[in-house]
């Protein structure tokens, strides 16, 4: 079937999503919770686009194409929603995301810098007990990619989404850390994480991710309480 994205007509197969059509047409759609290796999740709302005939913007990653559909990825209303979503996500972080992360790149491209909503931010909480994988819980935006990487790519089911609302985060096992969970250390979670909330120890310890190496005293405190 044929779909038109930003004026470009593309041929897509049955069941293709608007996001796939947009990529095929060469249009950029921001995403945070999407990963090609996983089934679309539709959680982050960063991929909202306008579709001809729809009353409100729709998420590109979970909306299936119809024949003759017209899509506008630059629709002002959709873009306003998306920018606000990314701004809200950033407002919860204690420091801006490192430049190499997907979140930082999406924000830059949308022109979002900082947040108009100062207020409470996540408390810095690092877990460095695993030799290769580190949690920086304060950077978690609850996109669910790590959990789905563990489930859908690796099939180990070691990670869980925990908490609600502002307290939502991710945990290995029952909050016991990677080492005491079912984790097989494949690193698919760190690979997909768009913020470095789960990252590689070598990159973190070496200061390669940007920012100072992890704060050792805080780590000790964290370890002594668990």
């Amino acid at each position: 079937m044929q779909v038109t994205v930003d004026g470009v007509a593309v041929e897509v197969s049955d069941g293709a999503t608007v996001l796939e059509a947009a990529r095929q047409a060469g249009s950029w759609v921001p995403t945070l919770c999407f990963d090609d290796r996983q089934a679309p999740f539709g959680a982050c709302r960063a991929c909202m686009v306008a579709v001809d005939g729809a009353a409100k913007p729709v998420p590109a990653c979970t909306t299936v194409c119809r024949d003759g559909m017209t899509v506008d990825t630059n629709d002002p209303t959709a873009r306003r929603v998306v920018s606000a979503v990314v701004e809200l996500v950033m407002s919860e972080l204690p420091s801006p995301p490192a430049p190499h992360t997907e979140l930082a790149q999406v924000a830059t491209r949308l022109g979002v810098s900082g947040s108009r909503w100062p207020g409470v931010t996540h408390q810095v909480e690092h877990d460095l007990r695993h030799p290769y994988l580190a949690f920086e819980h304060e950077l978690c935006i609850s996109c669910g990619r790590c959990v789905r990487a563990c489930d859908e790519v690796q099939g180990t089911f070691a990670l869980t989404a925990v908490g609600r609302g502002f307290g939502a985060n991710v945990a290995a096992g029952i909050g016991s850390g990677f080492l005491d969970s079912a984790c097989v250390s494949c690193g698919a979670c760190a690979d997909t994480c768009p913020t470095d909330a789960i990252t590689e120890r070598l990159l973190l310890d070496g200061g390669i991710n940007g920012g100072p190496p992890p704060d050792a005293p805080r780590l000790r405190k964290r370890l002594s309480t668990t």
Partner: peptide
């Protein structure tokens, strides 16, 4: 591997 690998390959 289609975008995946294990702890030996990765780490």
């Amino acid at each position: 591997n289609r975008g995946h690998t294990c702890l030996k390959g990765r780490f």
